[in-house]
Design a protein around this nucleic acid. Structure first.
Lengths: 172, 172
DNA sequence: AATTTTAGTCAGGGGGACCTGATTAAAATG
DNA sequence: CATTTTAATCAGGTCCCCCTGACTAAAATT
């Protein structure tokens, strides 16, 4: 069993990291006349974008199912994304009840960008530290996946698929 | 200069961590009939609580200044916390314009609890990994502090003070 | 004493993540 | 063909973070 003191220390640093990062983001976004903010977390509109960048052309219904959202929430997010010109809606020709959502170039770029840029703070780490960090996070993530899977296997499938597919390009 | 591939890999893991953690939290909070959710990030009501647990009895004005919020936002958060019985408001006797905010026992406990518990996912790490993680986060945090300081020195002071004071107990 | 600054309040707004309920239009099915 | 299921939509709600504008009451200044 791991040393509790070490755990606490790491936990504290993690909390601190969250706070500091949030504040740093805040400053940067606020100053630069932030047109499109981009936290793009695995939430709301961000979720939709991620799912679409994995599989473009899904129907709202599909998105809702895959992301564990109600049809209404999904519609709301999609509409917001349409306003931001990140996705488009069009009726399916084969089943005219369905609305197919497509990423626009901007949407694709946004989703990719999010993912494409390495946060500057990683520049301060050495190669060894980067390796260590990646290894540690891999373990932590695995443990969290496990937790999700135990709590809700159905949801786990959809989630894990979306996430890992999205991030696959990162690990080549 | 560090290896870009390693940076990307670590960055990807970090993003993944964010997503997975969010989803895991989600599941847990949703299921357990979540009375008081606890993200308590460095935002909104959480900010107030953190600042007060560092220095109790601040006026709203002080809080606003220290947390880079408008007086109105501060008032809103404070009022919400009052409703949740986490803080109390009382007029200052020396300057009757001022309202002094105090943490209630519950408020103090909440702020502490947040901070007191080690996330379960740290259990999967070995002592060595915990040390590595702490060391890495220390570097990253320092770099982010730097960024904040460069962008906005005034804000940095207030922020850094609040955060490090709050987390000081963690590192004894 | 008159004016100005300061601490708060109220009102209202913008954006975000979600949800339930009711309704419509188009498929699927008996 | 009539009914039922399905994909979406509208309407309305809850809560969160945060801001600007207008206004009051109490100190500080002139």
């Amino acid at each position: 069993m791991p040393d509790l003191t070490k755990q606490k220390k790491a936990a504290g640093k993690l909390i601190e990291f969250g706070m500091v990062r949030h504040t740093a983001d805040d400053l940067i976004h606020r100053d630069h006349a932030d047109k499109n903010e981009h936290p793009l977390r695995f939430q709301g509109q961000g979720k939709i974008l991620l799912a679409l960048s994995q599989t473009d052309g899904l129907s709202q219904r599909d998105l809702a199912a895959r992301l564990n959202l109600t049809a209404q929430s999904t519609a709301e997010f999609v509409n917001k994304l349409v306003k931001k010109q990140l996705v488009t809606k069009e009726k399916s020709t084969t089943d005219r009840r369905k609305t197919i959502i497509h990423l626009t170039d901007l949407g694709r770029a946004t989703a990719a960008t999010e993912t494409a840029e390495v946060p500057e703070f990683l520049n301060v780490l050495t190669d060894t530290e980067l390796d260590q960090l990646a290894a540690i996070l891999t373990k932590i993530n695995a443990s969290l996946y496990d937790e999700i899977n135990t709590a809700n296997p159905t949801r786990f499938d959809k989630f894990q698929q979306t996430v890992t597919n999205h991030l696959r390009d990162w690990f080549l």
